[in-house]
């Protein structure tokens, strides 16, 4: 199908973009379009205007920052995946991105757009939630920083307001002695996951994040929990949903199988890093 008609603006500055959004309550930001355009084509969304942010300078950089790495709103998934800086500072971001869509989609889709889109089946929201990062936005009242704990409120619903443009995401780096792991099951590499698990192990602290299981990206503290009890504890905080791709029971089973395995891999990663390696 084809999208319904909309007005199109391509502002050259952030201020103009914010003004264009504020002027039309039906307007939407267009970044990489890899989530928005399918919705428009299927007429599941019909914004009155698209504010294309792709001509705004300064939003396409990945920069090292104290304690982590900052990703600009126009940095494509492909550039984040290829970045040696990202890989060194936060290997979990790299591991997870390798599972985000196919290369062709990653050439266009942005990592920040993925965070704003707030899909619980996406890899980026749960990874940021697990790492405790934040999103910087600019609106009519100026800039503000949204901690990831306050970012996700419902299925496909974030606290970024209609007239705000997300300008960058801050992703904390991995502590020297910590380890990470990521695993998901999809029908083909690059398809949306049927279920996925990310884990961070730092000393005695063990935390795991779950994607595509509940309708919100969910993080569970598994510190001090024996491997055989992890899945039960995690499932107590999760509410597996069934759809045409997998039943709720099957998703619960994937959580049972993957959780202890991913935590064990993260532990092993922490052990190798502690023994002098930097990987």
């Amino acid at each position: 199908m084809k999208p319904a008609p909309f007005a199109y603006v391509r502002p050259g500055t952030l201020a103009e973009a914010v003004a264009a959004l504020a002027a039309d309550p039906g307007a939407k930001v267009l970044a990489g379009g890899q989530s928005l355009v399918p919705l428009l084509n299927m007429r599941l969304a019909a914004p009155t205007a698209l504010v294309d942010i792709n001509a705004i300078p300064g939003l396409d950089e990945i920069t090292a920052e104290a304690g982590g790495v900052r990703i600009g709103a126009l940095v494509r998934h492909a550039a984040v995946l290829a970045s040696p800086l990202v890989r060194r500072v936060q290997p979990l971001l790299h591991l997870a991105l390798d599972n985000v869509a196919h290369a062709t989609i990653r050439n266009r889709g942005t990592t920040v757009g993925s965070l704003v889109h707030a899909d619980a089946a996406g890899e980026m929201p749960v990874v940021l939630r697990l790492l405790g990062g934040s999103l910087d936005v600019v609106g009519p009242d100026g800039p503000r920083t949204i901690p990831v704990e306050e970012l996700y409120v419902g299925p496909l619903e974030s606290t970024v307001r209609h007239d705000e443009v997300a300008v960058s995401a801050f992703v904390p780096g991995l502590a020297a002695h910590a380890g990470v792991a990521f695993e998901e099951l999809a029908r083909r590499q690059g398809d949306y996951a049927l279920a996925g698990v990310a884990a961070v192990v730092e000393g005695d602290v063990v935390r795991a994040g779950f994607l595509s299981v509940s309708d919100l990206p969910t993080v569970v503290d598994l510190s001090g929990v024996a491997a055989e009890d992890m899945a039960d504890l995690a499932l107590a905080s999760l509410d597996p949903v069934g759809d045409i791709h997998a039943s709720a029971d099957y998703r619960a089973q994937l959580v049972r199988v993957m959780t202890p395995r991913v935590v064990a891999t993260a532990r092993e990663h922490a052990r190798t890093r502690t023994q002098g390696g930097t990987r």
Binding site: Q34, V37, P38, N54, T104, I105, N107, R108
Partner: peptide, 21 residues
């Protein structure tokens, strides 16, 4: 993937891009 074309040399989905952009 049937609509895949190269934009500035990189493969992209032509059905997910507006010509005006």
């Amino acid at each position: 993937g049937a609509c895949t074309v190269l934009v500035d040399g990189a493969p992209v989905r032509a059905c997910l891009l507006f010509a005006v952009t």
